[in-house]
């Protein structure tokens, strides 16, 4: 190997090593240690630019620009793009947590005169204050975190985020291989968050009478007071206490008014003495 080639190889090797020391050297959309906030923080502000005056710091502005340009590349004015493919046809919601700016992108239906969304038309980003994409979740492409509410032995609940859709076990939370990315302590009131409350004893069900691909098993109309459970291969109804009225304000003045404050399902598993109701399984069968 010639000295010049040797220098080249060493340079490449050092560059590779140096890159590994960077805190976020993984592909941005694969950094699953970044958890998107489940709380709006101290409030949710819907900015109406015509009504007030706002000042935005440069780091947030750059984060918004990075997101907008990543989803909708600039300088496309000569292309014949539809209304929905343009930056200005979207809303950009952001919240800053220390050195990370989280940005959520949604369609602005009114801008294009529409009344319904396109499927999988949302996206969210985590941008570092120095302008790097730490994580990107685009609908239909990237898997989001799974958020769970688990019952604790003392009757409380703990909310955790996991990478996979497999149900986490409460007793495994402290183990390194539990799959739990984070234990959530903030109130959950960020729009668009989906929380799963597992019920023990789940087993996959083979197709059969009244349970074919595409079929519905619950009765209609939907009754929010009824909780459902499978017992002995049958779907049975478990009566519930009426759920508390949700806060009309998504967090502006009552940030702790999330769903967890007395969830509709609390105590449901203890009231199994009610007679099972017919599951209405055949209603939607072919």
């Amino acid at each position: 190997m010639t000295p010049r080639k040797l220098i080249f190889v060493i340079t490449i090797a050092l560059a590779s090593c140096a890159r590994k020391w960077e805190p976020f050297s993984t592909r941005p959309e694969q950094d699953r240690s970044i958890i998107f906030p489940l709380s709006t923080g101290s409030g949710f502000v819907d900015i109406k630019a015509q009504e007030k005056t706002y000042e935005l710091d440069g780091e947030v502005l750059r984060a918004l620009m990075i997101v907008a340009n990543d989803l909708f590349p600039p300088d496309t004015s000569k292309l014949d793009l539809s209304c929905t493919a343009r930056q200005q046809a979207h809303t950009f919601r952001f919240t800053r947590r220390e050195d990370i700016i989280f940005v959520y992108v949604d369609e602005d239906l009114a801008y294009c005169g529409r009344t319904t969304h396109a499927m999988d038309s949302g996206a969210k980003y985590a941008i570092s204050k120095d302008g790097r994409i730490l994580r990107r979740v685009i609908d239909g492409i990237d898997e989001d975190d799974h958020i769970w509410s688990l019952k604790t032995p003392d009757g409380g609940t703990v909310i955790v985020a996991t990478e996979s859709g497999a149900t986490p076990a409460l007793e495994d939370l402290d183990k390194p291989d539990s799959g739990v990315l984070k234990i959530i302590t903030e109130p959950v009131n960020m729009p668009g968050v989906m929380i799963i409350e597992p019920i023990e004893g789940f087993e996959p069900i083979e197709e059969g009478p009244g349970n074919v691909p595409g079929s519905s098993m619950f009765p209609y109309p939907f009754d929010p007071k009824t909780k459902w459970q499978w017992r002995d291969g049958k779907l049975v109804a478990v009566p519930q206490e009426p759920p508390p009225a949700p806060s009309p304000d998504l967090g502006g003045s009552t940030p702790d008014a999330g769903w967890d404050a007395g969830s509709p399902g609390d105590g449901g598993m203890e009231s199994l003495s009610a007679p099972p109701s017919p599951p209405d399984a055949g209603a939607a069968a072919p």
Partner: peptide, 23 residues
């Protein structure tokens, strides 16, 4: 064909909701 998940979704308001897993 096998149904491997069966959950119930509850809307908390027009933008936030949660699942409940059945069984």
């Amino acid at each position: 064909w096998k149904k491997t998940k069966h959950e119930s979704l509850r809307w908390l308001d027009d933008r936030t909701y949660r699942f409940e897993r059945i069984q």
